[in-house]
Design a protein around this nucleic acid. Structure first.
Lengths: 196, 196, 196, 196
DNA sequence: TATGAATGAGACTTCATTCAT
DNA sequence: GATGAATGAAGTCTCATTCAT
């Protein structure tokens, strides 16, 4: 009665997310993850090559889920403004419902080299690309300033939302992150119109 | 030849900055820092209680230096716009001239608990306060939207500059960060006028 | 399709011989032997008590096969010289056709205590006895020196052939071992005539 | 008062020799060696890169000692017979005074691949070369048969002495190994005269 | 002050063995 | 009998910290 065949895989991933989010990657012991997942230490290694692989897998899986939702938004035939608002809202909603992920998401910033870094970059790439796409579309449709480089546009979008999420994490989710969506989106929308 | 009495203290701090910036805090070995500082392993512990304290001291010292420069700007009797531009420029200039610090600066994001986190928050607090002050002044002088909360204003400023710095670090400083100052400041300035 | 009832037993033994000969006993994983034998890990334990017993069983079985051939030679009514030549040739032929066994055969040297050692000694005993018998017969028939102890005689025979086999294993069987039979036997025959 | 600077190095090597000889390399735990050497586990790693390196170092050091004695014999201006007798006697004397080494010496036979094997081969090479030299000299001086290949000659010498040593180890040194020197040397001397 | 050899707790990972199916 | 997922004990190695000199 092993239930779902990869039930254990999911259990470990969930446990890993909780433990790493709480203690940080380096403080998180594999045996803690095992205990949290209610499996033996060795069982971890039936599903993951090593500790690093757990972290990367968590990130990859969550990001996949996020990207699926993002792609639906990206394919909608709506105005730039509406799309940008939807994107921002999605990001905040997603993080609010998975606060551990919000904590993990900043991990890559630290890893300026090594396998973890490379994988994080790889995994984040499609998201960055989506932001670049919406900025470019806005510039083409002349709702955004053509005097701003696309990269600077991406920095605005990502930076404002990231800082909002980080702040919320620091405050341990004591208020609604999602409720800030419209305001933050409006600010980004206005920022991208800056003529320089 | 001991020169200055706390010559060693400075040596260790500089060495620590380089080693931690290169490998990350957890990968940095105390013995590596000692070697880089050209002192014995044990000497480190004459100046610092433990490894954590090296990190905190680095951060504290650099931030002190930064805050001194920032205070000069804050006390100037100039327009809100000029002050905000000066603040942004200072931050970018400072980071470009100390790329290791830029790398370290994001460390606190990871530490959601523990002594490091608490100290980082304490050290960053005066800077955040300065940003809050300029936002408030702008709102009072009605150059910024009064419909934006001050905290959201702070998020805009900090988020956009942080992301610009992070991106520059990731690209290993392959372009001039300081040169982006005017554009980024202009964007922040515009963003803060958003009516919601 | 179970064919022979102890078909699996033989499969595992053959697989064990290959895997242990290739990697050595300690490096050989039970799961590798299972994979090579195309059975499940757990199946191994239906036929063998533990990993050690696989090794002992391999040795025992191969030695049994060898001893059957040796006994035929021992019962032939031929001269001491002919019998000694036949014995040497058999040993080399046998090893050349089972190079994995040659590798395993030296294992006992390592185990100066423990269950493996005791079993190896037990298994090798009949072979040593056969060598002792031929030496004794030679001494009785006065073709070998009576001034040599039988044990020293045994050491000559076993030592020379063993070293020849070991060398051949080290050279990864790049030449014919069996072809050295007549020369090596001649040397042993002469050595056993040494008066001291 | 650290006494000799590499006192610890020697302590660990001696402890390693004892522990590995008793339990075998794979059964010997690094922590056992540390305990036997009366140092902390971590101290081992100040002097050796890893467990393998301990084994190789033991072998290398003992072999160096042996080779120094052997070289003295090799340079004496004596007859082939006398030199061969001296070589055999040295080997037996050396092993009898270091029974642990005798146990270790056979280890290389097992390691048909890997770093240990390569190092053992490298370390044993000079000894094999010395045996080859004496065999060649005997052939040149026509005291040994010219119809025997040098390699076969080496096999005789090494094989007979090895088996004598192994047997003595198995019997746990219950008799004098060195006392067998003259007899064994005589046998080897005679064996090398075999015409084929 | 300064040194750096020594410590030893603790982490990750492996793998022989078990047992529910 | 057969399976193979799961177990968990055990071992190697690291590195922050100490302390005798």
């Amino acid at each position: 009665m092993g239930k779902n065949p990869n039930r254990k895989h999911a259990q470990i991933l969930e446990a890993g997310t909780r433990v790493i989010a709480e203690h940080g990657y380096h403080q998180a012991k594999v045996s803690d993850i095992a205990k949290e997942a209610k499996v033996a230490d060795g069982t971890i290694y039936l599903y993951f090559n090593n500790k690093e692989h757990i972290l990367i897998s968590i990130f990859e899986e969550k990001m996949q889920e996020f990207m699926q939702k993002l792609e639906i938004i990206m394919q909608k035939d709506v105005s730039v403004k509406e799309q940008l608002f939807d994107m921002a809202q999605l990001q905040l909603d997603f993080m609010e419902s998975r606060p551990e992920l919000a904590t993990l998401a900043h991990f890559e910033l630290l890893q300026t080299k090594g396998e973890i870094h490379d994988n994080m970059q790889r995994i984040l790439f499609p998201f960055f690309q989506a932001v670049i796409d919406i900025v470019n579309r806005g510039k083409e449709e002349q709702v955004f300033s053509s005097s701003l480089s696309t990269e600077i546009g991406r920095i605005c979008f990502v930076g404002i939302l990231n800082e909002a999420i980080t702040t919320w994490v620091m405050e341990k989710g004591s208020y609604s992150l999602a409720a800030q969506g419209p305001v933050l989106a409006e600010i980004v929308y206005q920022a991208l119109q800056t003529e320089v």
